[in-house]
């Protein structure tokens, strides 16, 4: 009886992985195929397969389609996927660390911190020696890390027990303050206003392969760090004191996780602006499906989060075509009600 249950449980998890992978693949294909010029699904699949060494397969595909996919659609879809994956895994990690299903890079103010870093870099035309084009993500990462440290320090001073509401409130206050700073900076500079606002609301359009190259190292390092901390994240869910009792070096692990989370958030913001709520909705959704164990939660959040963001971007660019909506609008439209629902359920319990 019990064995049967365990098996059922395990297969449920296995099924979740299969569904998530399938969902991601489907999103990629649909994301590439749909647009102002639609590309037949078969051609998309053929072009994708050609990347893993079957060039001969491309003979019967329209060269224009190949061009669109390789230079516009594919980098866009990949970037959207990477951004979604980064925000989701960072959100899942922040939630575990702060024992708080309402935490996410956006509500914690980390995204705004990253924006400030990015805006400073862009407007002062900063170029840190040896970093070159990595200056932008580096500054974003740096600022998001500083902001999360500040938020945690500040809410601890405010309320030593660090209640969920305190952290969120602090995050939102800091977030608004930083947004005001950004607005001020933009107003003072006075040009490229529309473009900057578009960037702030979040978009993955017209970024190209260079952005992917810029983002990938941060994504890989950040994700690997978080994936190595799944046990610690599980322990943190029972409070820092309990985590220490279990043998976890709390301060060190906390800094590692915060750093990796900020790195992922920072780099996502640097390439796409602030896209809210992905880091909130996706881990929440995955947790409902397979439970809170971070070993699975993180990986599945990456898969689902990237697929979700690719689809959100697809909606953003097709819904009122040819005009593009910022992707942040779509995610907020879905995310805000989920956030409200979570808040309501917390109150009730």
């Amino acid at each position: 009886m019990r064995k049967q249950f365990t098996q059922k449980y395990l297969t449920k998890r296995k099924a979740a992985y299969i569904y998530a992978a399938f969902f991601l693949l489907l999103s990629i294909i649909v994301g590439i195929a749909v647009g102002t010029v639609s590309i037949p699904i078969f051609s998309v699949v053929k072009i994708l397969v050609s990347y893993i060494g079957f060039d001969s397969i491309l003979h019967h595909v329209d060269p224009m389609h190949i061009n669109i996919v390789q230079n516009i659609r594919l980098p866009r879809v990949i970037l959207a996927g990477l951004v979604g994956a980064s925000l989701s895994i960072a959100g899942a990690a922040f939630q575990g660390l702060l024992r708080n299903p309402l935490a996410d890079p956006y509500t914690l103010g980390v995204s705004s911190g990253a924006s400030v870093g990015a805006v400073i870099t862009l407007f002062f035309h900063l170029q840190i020696p040896f970093l070159g084009s990595f200056t932008l993500p580096f500054m974003s990462v740096l600022f998001s890390f500083l902001i999360i440290l500040f938020v945690i320090f500040f809410s601890k001073r405010l309320d030593p027990s660090m209640r969920v509401e305190t952290i969120i409130l602090t995050g939102i206050v800091i977030s608004s303050f930083l947004s005001a700073c950004i607005s001020l900076m933009i107003a003072l500079t006075g040009n490229e206003l529309r473009q900057i606002i578009g960037w702030l609301l979040g978009s993955v359009s017209m970024r190209g392969w260079s952005y992917i190259k810029m983002m990938l190292p941060f994504f890989v390092v950040g994700s690997l760090i978080l994936l190595s901390q799944t046990k610690e994240l599980n322990a943190f869910a029972f409070g820092e004191e309990r985590a220490q009792h279990l043998g976890i070096h709390v301060q060190r692990r906390k800094m590692i996780i915060l750093f990796a989370g900020s790195m992922l958030t920072g780099v996502a913001v640097a390439v796409s602006g602030t896209i809210g709520f992905i880091g909130l909705v996706i881990p929440h959704f995955v947790r409902i499906l397979i439970g809170p164990d971070h070993k699975h939660l993180l990986v599945l959040s990456v898969l689902t989060g990237s697929g979700f963001t690719i689809l959100a971007d697809l909606f953003a660019r097709t819904i009122i075509s040819p005009t593009e909506l910022p992707i942040g609008v779509i995610t907020a439209l879905i995310g805000a009600p989920v956030f409200a629902n979570l808040l309501l359920r917390r109150r009730r319990s």
């Binding site: 024992r99 708080n100 869910a237 029972f238 976890i248 439970g291 809170p292």
Partner: peptide, 23 residues
């Protein structure tokens, strides 16, 4: 054995007990 543990997420009993093996 703490007096009170905050449970923020619904872990299963087995998952919780297995954390004891961390060290």
């Amino acid at each position: 054995l703490p007096q009170h543990v905050q449970e923020s997420f619904s872990y299963t009993v087995k998952e919780i007990v297995s954390l004891g093996r961390y060290a």
